[in-house]
Amino acid sequence: MEILVCIKRVPLVGSTFILTDDASEIDTRRLGFTLSPHEECAVEAAVQLRDAHGGSVTLLSLGTAETEEQLREQLAIGADRAILAITDGSEPDPQATAAALLEAIRADGAQFDLVLLGSESADVAGYQTGIRLAHALGLPVVTGVKGLTVDAGVARCERAVGSEREVYSVALPAVITVKDGLNIPRYPSVPGRIKARKKEVSTHEVTLAAPRIVKGRLVVPAAAAKGTKVLDANEQGAAALVDVFREIGLLA
């Protein structure tokens, strides 16, 4: 089974959002970058499926040259090769993202039985790249998947709805977007990292269409000033908490 996984380099965010002076971007100078848990689960699922069914796992990311960092990290957990669709760093909207990913897939030329993406990107959360890519590739798409098995060319996809699960079935080739909780992604091992250094990362220059969702300012919503009450870490503090339980009607 030939599997493609689309992953996106996103800013690492700690306890608060620090924006650039013009409020157009997150300030990444201190914390650096990471991947969304959804996409980590997508790579883990791809590696598990390859190990069970044979074939290979290709990673694809659209981003700046530095995106190689995230691609190498995921090559280290077991993906076979990577494609980096290089941009100048301007932020495409989801429509332009899907178009550029399509261009890179076409330029690469390989045929994929399964294309995995995250349900939504960690930063933009456009909820659409996988669906747009599926329409462009003429493939069916199942989204938000938290349980995935493949048997005889058919994928069984489970999606959580409250405490229940909806089950969809789709014949491959197909696009599937997945969510955190699909599996527990492994950490890269030292041998994995060493092997990853030698794996192929091919680059494609892609042209980005002008965004039709034109990003203006970013705003950090103001948190309500709470006035935290600090209680003692002893019997008295514990008793005060029980009073709180009583006040909000949990205890008679």
Binding site: F17, A122, V214, L218
Partner: peptide, 19 residues
């Protein structure tokens, strides 16, 4: 014009939509 949620609503984006 739209204001939309990024990062699960921890950050808002003010954008114009050409459509």
């Amino acid at each position: 014009r739209v204001t939309r949620a990024r990062w699960g609503g921890n950050l808002l984006e003010e954008s114009t939509v050409i459509t």
